[in-house]
């Protein structure tokens, strides 16, 4: 008589435990995920070897050509050469032949909000200036 050893079956792993873990992870990521679509506007970029700007002295604005100044009032309205302009009118004015491609300086009021500044930046960017700077007035005692 020949005795054959029965092949040992591999240990049965319950799939239910794995499904439990997966479900918990799934619910965790569903709850903690935020669906935010965010963009960015660069505020400062400089080469790795460039020195940090001296914030105390304030940056002296070199003026090659003739820069044009856009003022942002406390009420969020923008002014070009003394005229109040909305965003579209500002873009159109900066596209005029005498201002096309000029460097634009933005002088915002400290009382205006970030949204107003971004609106002006967008309007100026659409006009395609050669450069844009934001000026800041420091009050010294």
């Amino acid at each position: 008589m020949q005795i054959t050893r029965r092949q040992r079956q591999g240990a049965v792993i319950s799939l239910v435990a794995m499904v439990d873990v997966l479900m918990i992870m799934l619910v965790f990521f569903m709850v903690t995920s935020t669906f935010l679509d965010l963009d960015m506007i660069p505020m400062a970029e400089r080469a790795p070897d460039a020195p940090a700007p001296d914030v105390v002295q304030g940056a002296a604005v070199a003026a090659p050509g003739s820069p044009v100044m856009v003022r942002l009032g406390a009420d969020g309205r923008s002014y070009l050469r003394g005229r109040a302009l909305d965003a579209d009118a500002l873009t159109a004015a900066l596209r005029a032949p005498d201002l096309r491609g000029a460097e634009v300086l933005v002088l915002p009021s400290g009382q205006a909000d970030v949204q107003a500044l971004v609106r002006v930046i967008d309007a100026i960017t659409r006009a395609g200036p050669s450069a844009m700077r934001i000026l800041r007035v420091e009050v010294r005692p």
Partner: peptide
């Protein structure tokens, strides 16, 4: 802006090579 602009300038003065505004 009287809060935001000085803050951005201070961060840049710390030596940050890239400062971006989230929109």
């Amino acid at each position: 802006l009287h809060r935001f602009l000085p803050l951005a300038a201070e961060i840049e003065a710390l030596g940050a090579r890239e400062v971006v505004l989230v929109v």
